[in-house]
């Protein structure tokens, strides 16, 4: 059981970049742990810190005015490597959802399997969200998973999620609980399989 996701009202950290790949989210040299914890410290490591470990002042996560549990980023977020460490790092750093106009497939699954909600919205909606956040860094958004809505400043945007995954997130269940429950059915399948 993990913490259910029902609704969330929070501020947003905007990252106005496209094709943010998992090598940026968590560089390969930090993938050497054998547990799932602690990856948040190295989230966006090489964008956040210089070679000596000093914070880079221009990077959005280092801006003290920016706080929030939602990350918003340009299209094709999470492309590249399948490393689930990317989803763990974002979650570990305190984010509960990512808003983008497009997610890479494997990242989307990894996020959903870790209680991190990928909210995919039309490009125009994302552009408006970015514009508002440029003006008012503390503008809040609300994500209502039950009703599949993202709300901010008078705008209400529907987003898609598979009914099964939605149920899992609302209740804090995961796929393994389900698959373990149908092992007999899997054994039946194996009897007729030819390979």
């Amino acid at each position: 059981m993990r913490e259910p996701f029902i609704t969330l009202t929070t501020t947003v950290i905007p990252m106005e970049l496209e094709n943010v790949d998992t090598d940026q989210i968590i560089p390969a040299r930090f993938l050497k742990a054998t547990t799932r914890e602690g990856f948040g410290d190295n989230l966006f490591r090489d964008w956040r810190y210089d070679g000596d470990g000093n914070p880079r002042p221009g990077f959005i996560l280092n801006d003290p005015a920016r706080r929030g549990e939602v990350l918003a980023a340009g299209k094709n977020f999470g492309c590249g490597s399948s490393r689930e460490h990317a989803a763990w790092a974002i979650r570990d750093a305190g984010f509960r959802a990512v808003v983008s106009s497009h997610f890479a497939d494997i990242f989307r699954n990894n996020a959903l399997n870790n209680g991190l909600l990928p909210v995919q919205v039309p490009a125009g909606c994302l552009t408006r969200l970015f514009a508002i956040l440029r003006e008012r860094p503390d503008a809040p958004v609300t994500i209502d998973l039950e009703r599949q809505r993202l709300r901010f400043e008078g705008e209400e945007q529907h987003f898609e999620i598979s009914p099964y995954k939605k149920e899992c997130l609302l209740k804090g269940y995961d796929d393994i609980d389900y698959l373990l429950g149908i092992r007999e059915k899997i054994e039946e399948y194996e009897k007729q399989r030819t390979i």
Binding site: R36, S82, R83, E84, H85, A87, D105, I106, N109, N110, N113, N114, S162, Y164, D174, D175, I176, Y178, L179, L180, I182, R183, I186, E190
Partner: peptide, 22 residues
Amino acid sequence: FGIGTSEVEMVLASQCILQSKP
């Protein structure tokens, strides 16, 4: 196709994975 670690765990546990057909 490539999968994440939670999915590796799924397949180890059940030899199956939950996926939407692309």
